[in-house]
Nucleic acid binder design. Structure first.
Length: 368
RNA sequence: UGGGGUGUAGCCAAGCGGCAAGGCAGCGGACUUUGGAUCCGCCAUCGCUGGUUCGAAUCCAGCCACCCCAG
């Protein structure tokens, strides 16, 4: 990984020094407003944009250019972090592997945990010394005594804490998320107030590295053997186009007509089969996750009443903690959850919306 | 080639003389810093050919196709 001043910017400073915050700028509205807000608050702001691999039709360099021009407008230094290789290894490869294994990856969560707030932050500190890091995520950092917490953004529908659960706890004191207290509308208004060139830019969505087409293109070249689509009794219902094209809970694209519609209940990589059934059969109460990251200074005890999410959308819902340690996170939801999906994340919150811990879902069952 | 039955969109399926329900699948849009979900919208002139009728998917005739029973 190399971090260099972006074209048109002066040579690197030897160190950032006190009062410096590095803002990860994507070139979008949110991170641009983030930089502006922090600058207004008196921080010495340095912009950094990650250069990720260009796949397919992804708009080459457009975002880096936007970010640089915003930085120029704000009069702040701007650097480009060339992380193509790291991104490939830490995000794209696991992404592909996950699909091939029959699970559903969450590249954004990986990118945050492993790259932005992992490798990149390490690298920044190596190069420029300890500094604060900020992003335009809709989530908040709360301080209570000497403890820091990651918590939900003010606007529930925009909250992105789900994607951030993987940040190492020791990073929280130096992480700044200034947008967490604003609504999307307010941020948009701030962008106009600041006369940012990207103020009217539309929301980005979909996988950043997949480009125009859908993610399946990234699996091109891999052999995706077709196989059977069966119901829970093993009855053959149809043919699938390779396990990697499906995800638990999926309804569209099965091509099978039935009385009420079918959803993927589970994917069986061993038999190269996709098991489908009616919607009500997708619900699960007990969910177990691995690769746990605990954010609370003291993990809640077994039996603790928490709120969990098994997917990015939707509100955290009541559950009881069955187990939480570095290896396993397991909960029992009060109400059955729609299709908890292996590979997606289980993120737990306390009643105050603070992230207690999270992990990668590996298994779920109806109840018990 | 005797008897009986069926024939409505890719699939299932309402309708029984008055301008073709619904579901599934599919397509399109909305939502969304992952996937999926969800929501909204679109999607047939009724096997064919004649006839009866102001008017037929609905009645009649012939033909075709498929299914069942019997040979």
């Amino acid at each position: 990984m190399k971090i260099r001043p972006s074209t048109g910017f002066s040579s690197p400073s030897p160190s950032f020094g006190q009062g410096t915050v590095v803002v990860l700028m994507s070139g979008g509205v949110d991170s641009s407003v983030t930089a502006w807000l922090l600058q207004k608050a008196g921080w010495h702001v340095v912009g950094v944009t990650m250069k990720i691999p260009e796949t397919g039709k992804s708009p080459g360099g457009c975002c880096g250019r936007d970010a640089a021009s915003v930085a120029l407008g704000l009069g702040i230094p701007h650097y480009t972090a060339f992380i193509e290789r790291e991104f490939e290894q830490l995000v794209i490869e696991p992404f592909v592997e996950s699909y091939l294994r029959g699970s559903t990856p969450n590249p954004c969560a990986d990118c945050n945990a492993l790259l932005k707030f992992g490798l990149l932050w390490d690298e920044l500190e190596d190069a420029f010394g300890e500094s604060f890091l900020a992003t335009g995520h809709y989530a908040r950092i709360e301080q209570e005594g000497e403890n820091f917490f990651l918590s939900r953004g003010k606007e529930p529908s925009k909250d992105q804490s789900y994607f951030l659960y993987g940040v190492a706890r020791h990073r929280l004191p130096r992480l700044l998320l200034p947008l967490g207290g604003y609504s999307k509308e307010e941020v948009r208004a701030l962008a106009r107030e600041a006369a940012l060139s990207v103020a009217e830019k539309s929301e980005s969505m979909e996988i950043c590295f997949a480009g125009e087409g859908d993610y399946r293109r990234l699996l091109d070249g891999r052999s995706l053997p077709h196989g059977k689509i069966v119901d829970e009794d093993g009855e053959l219902l149809g043919t699938h186009k390779g396990i990697a094209n499906y995800t638990v809970g999926q309804r569209k694209g099965l091509g099978i007509s039935s009385r009420d519609g079918l959803h993927v209940l589970r994917i069986d990589p061993g038999r190269n089969a996709v098991v489908v059934g009616p919607r009500e059969r997708t619900f699960r109460r007990r969910v177990r996750a691995r690769n746990v990251n605990i954010l609370f200074p003291v993990p809640p005890e077994e039996g603790a009443f928490l709120f969990g999410k098994t997917r990015s959308r939707g509100e955290p819902l009541p559950c009881d903690l069955l187990r939480m340690d570095e290896n396993v996170l397991e909960v029992l939801f009060h109400e059955p959850q729609f299709a908890p999906t292996p590979g997606q994340r289980l993120v737990l919150y306390d009643a105050g919306g603070r992230v207690a811990a999270g992990g990668v879902i590996e298994y779920s069952e109806e109840a018990e």
